[in-house]
């Protein structure tokens, strides 16, 4: 259903159980800190189909931050939903602050360019896929 990449498999291994449920905010996604060494694999695939839920890492999608909650039954994805979605009010300022100069090499020096939106990058779908993948990693699925 989604172009889920195989990256990030190692990022959040140690959180696999603790992230179940609603509120526990996952460790910061941005740093990509690979935790722990070669830990032994977690619970092996259950014989009975168990319904489990995990929340993926927070991912920046350009306008804010999202994380994805996935529920699996056995090894099958049952539902995927956006668990947290923060639309940063100041996103335009943040992004504009990083805007690169264009057109005749003018230099953008200001912090507060006013823009209404951004065309181009599928930040959201990437962030969605990354967060989903990390949620699946926590459940040792796929």
């Amino acid at each position: 259903m989604l172009p889920v990449g195989s990256a990030r498999a190692s990022t959040d291994r140690q959180h696999h159980k603790s992230a179940v449920g609603g509120s526990a905010p996952p460790a910061s996604a941005a740093g990509g800190s690979t935790t722990g060494g070669a830990s032994s694999p977690g619970p092996s695939a259950p014989l009975v189909e168990v319904r489990r839920t995990a929340v993926g890492a927070l991912e920046n999608y350009g306008y804010g931050i999202l994380s994805v909650r996935v529920t699996v039954l056995g090894s099958r994805i049952e539902s995927v939903a956006v668990q947290r979605l923060q639309t940063a009010e100041q996103y335009s300022q943040q992004l504009a602050a990083q805007a690169i100069p264009m057109l005749h090499s003018e230099v953008l020096s200001a912090q507060s360019a006013q823009i209404n939106g951004i065309s181009g990058a599928s930040y959201t779908s990437q962030a969605y896929a990354l967060s989903l993948q990390s949620a699946l990693d926590r459940l040792h699925v796929a």
Partner: peptide
């Protein structure tokens, strides 16, 4: 939009 117009000069 000219880059200059994007900046509110601090």
């Amino acid at each position: 939009v000219p880059v200059a117009a994007l900046s509110a000069e601090p």
